[in-house]
Design a protein around this nucleic acid. Structure first.
Lengths: 236, 236
DNA sequence: CGCTCTATTTATAATTC
DNA sequence: TGAATTATAAATAGAGC
């Protein structure tokens, strides 16, 4: 028998022409994805090769985004100062950023610190949540291994607790029998605190989450010359 | 006889770890390729989406490279002008102050928001910690109230567990007695597999937070933070 | 939007010249 | 270095939630 292949769920990635995407929505979507991709590439480059990178991007809607490793400020200063190997001082293009960065450095750092702490707190929370869920789910009883590790005193007190519990269980059964189960009462379902059975495992780091760039247009740009300096030369 | 041409001429692209490439030559090669790739991506982004991009990169050897569309200069001015569209700001100082004010405002708001979130996360964490502690402290056994809420089936299975546990406890006692306690053995610690009850939930993929490459390169940097501004926020 | 999924296109690590 | 080649890892277009 043939394996009945599921109907194609997508046509897969299609090749696209290297020209401005006319559809506005598609263009915005593409921009978001590719900006993320670009920043990721930059991150990788800096990590893998120890390169220092600064990027500034204006979205089609005119919203500014930037990336910097170690920081835009640093890159700016370095660029201004003429950098190490290059020797020659590249003039003022980024000096404004430099000035700005100088004064904002402190706040930025503080901000970065806060973000980090937030991350950590959240991670911790997820872990704890999972732990709670695990204990609850496992009926809360210590497993055999744990019992096997106990010392005499621990065993003793543990035994007492067990006795107590047994009494409780017995009582409860009696109670239930008396009630004669003509009512499906109580026990709505899972206690609310439990939430998700498995615990949150969140895979994605929402690092790139961002407020939607909404903004006016500004009419210029498409046909201005593009190029890049490569070593000592300019390419276009 | 067929010419078995199958012999692999290369192993193809191999996956590489996201960490600094130690081999200097390989690092340089990788840098060249990836810088080209980065600039190409930037070009595509600007063409496809009409975005305006400026990039500055320092090679691991300290050589500066830059990319700009329409030009680095333009990007710089625009960035300085805070999206004014005109990009005509000529007087750096004034411009800097202006931009700074704008950003300060943004950052301050952001700061406030983050602080709030941090606090909330901490509160949540404390709560969960308390919960965990409570369960732990109670030797992990469900308390009376919980037993009192159980339904018949639950009670039944719970009873079974209790029986099992009792057996374990008994066994353990025997074991201990046999050992005659002339050796303080066992109880070393927690068996490795047990680890922390919850297990690792790693939701975090350090993609963009990668530990700085420890670039002893330019003699600075270890403690600088990497990050980028995305819309209104700074990410690190 | 922002995230997912899938099928493809691209980017590139490894290798050779 | 630099320019191919090759096989595989990654990015991402398109469509859906």
């Amino acid at each position: 028998m043939m394996m009945l292949r599921k109907k194609r769920q997508s046509m897969g990635r299609q090749k696209i022409a290297m020209k401005r995407i006319e559809n506005e929505e598609a263009r915005q979507v593409c921009f978001s994805k590719r900006r993320a991709g670009l920043f990721k590439k930059a991150t990788e480059l800096s990590i893998l090769c120890g390169a220092e990178i600064g990027i500034v991007v204006f979205s089609p809607a005119g919203k500014p985004f930037s990336f910097g490793h170690p920081s835009l400020d640093y890159i700016t200063k370095r660029f201004l100062g003429g950098g190490g190997g290059g020797g020659e001082m590249v003039v003022a293009p980024l000096c404004g950023i430099f000035v700005e960065g100088q004064k904002l450095l402190q706040l930025n750092q503080e901000h970065a610190g806060l973000t980090e702490k937030l991350e950590e707190a959240r991670r911790m929370r997820a872990e704890l949540e999972a732990e709670v869920a695990a204990q609850r789910g496992g009926s809360g009883l210590p497993c055999d291994v744990e019992v096997h590790e106990m010392g005499v005193e621990e065993l003793e007190s543990f035994q007492k607790r067990l006795e107590e519990l047994r009494r409780n269980v017995a009582n409860r059964r009696e109670e239930l029998e008396i009630l004669c189960m003509d009512t499906k009462v109580t026990r709505g379902g899972v206690p609310p605190q439990l939430g998700y059975g498995g615990g949150y495992l969140g895979g994605y780091n929402g690092l790139y989450l961002a407020p939607a760039p909404v903004g006016g247009f500004y009419g210029h740009g498409q046909d201005m010359n593009m190029g890049f300096r490569f070593g000592d030369r300019w390419y276009s």
